[in-house]
Design a protein around this nucleic acid. Structure first.
Length: 256
DNA sequence: GCGACAG
DNA sequence: ATCTTGTCGC
């Protein structure tokens, strides 16, 4: 995949204030509406013309200093893995809520550079627009590459579900909106994403929903619809789950 | 000061 | 995210 313009470079040496300022620029440039060069309704279909979905995930090696990040990308189309790649980079920035992309985007962008094919859309492990400054990991990387992107988080960073997300049936989606008092830089009432119950146990045990939000060039509604089409039998959508497993695989090999 | 916080 | 085996339950 082509090199990203350096405009939104996730430089981990920036001051916290500079990182936050850059995030505001990113949110300003990001598009939270559908601007897709493909039909999202065709995600999940088989064949050479069906959309190519990239699943992206990280694993970390903490056995040395500095810590190393393994970013894995799996290109998925209609249940088939078309391509896999990964990159390993040193990271010195710790995890800071709200600044995740400055810790992880470097290795992610490095991995994207080694990709042979251009994906149509990418799914990230983390938030997109559901972020204090509307610039989560999915938005940062999506905007940097000008690639349609979606955030798929396992827990909610900010924003408020419109109704309880306890005991949702499989397939249910609840809007996550901005309420008065929320630390989220968007007008009150804005739907910044959805809680999406991808799977549910038949018995009473509970599975937390996923929190899906627009990264770049995708609306909130299309983002969930798209994730729902990446099905599979687990909580996480297939591209993400496969990238997660691949990152762990690379990590195992790397510490032998 | 308190609370709350993706991975 | 990571440290980590077996184990309780359907």
């Amino acid at each position: 995949m082509r090199d990203p313009p350096a405009r939104f470079d996730p430089d981990p040496s920036l001051s916290r204030a500079a990182m936050e300022a850059l995030q505001c620029e990113i949110a300003d440039a990001a598009v939270f509406d559908d601007d897709l060069p493909f039909d999202p309704a065709r995600v999940g279909e088989t064949g050479p013309d069906a959309p190519l979905v990239a699943g992206v995930d990280q694993a970390f090696l903490t056995d040395r200093e500095p810590e190393r990040a393994v970013s894995a990308i799996v290109l998925w189309r209609g249940g088939e893995v078309v391509e896999r790649t990964h990159a390993v980079l040193d990271v010195d920035l710790p995890y800071i809520p709200g600044l995740l992309s400055f810790r992880e985007a470097g290795s992610i962008l490095a991995a994207f550079r080694t990709l042979d094919r251009d994906p149509d859309v990418a799914l990230f492990d983390g938030s997109g627009r559901i972020h204090f400054r509307q610039a989560g990991l999915a938005t940062h990387v999506g905007a940097a590459l000008d690639l349609p992107s979606v955030g798929v988080a396992k827990s909610l960073l900010c924003g408020t579900p419109r109704e309880s997300v306890d005991e949702l049936p499989a397939g249910a989606r609840v809007p996550v909106e901005v309420r008065d008092g929320d630390d989220l830089d968007a007008p009150v009432g804005t739907v910044v994403g959805y809680a999406y119950q991808s799977r549910q146990f038949p018995d009473s045990r509970r599975i937390n929903p996923l929190y899906v939000s627009p990264g770049h060039r995708v609306s909130a509604g299309t983002a969930v619809a798209l994730v729902a089409r990446c099905g599979g039998d687990y909580k996480l959508p297939e591209p993400t789950r496969l990238a997660d497993a691949y990152a762990d695989e690379v990590k195992r090999e790397l510490r032998e």
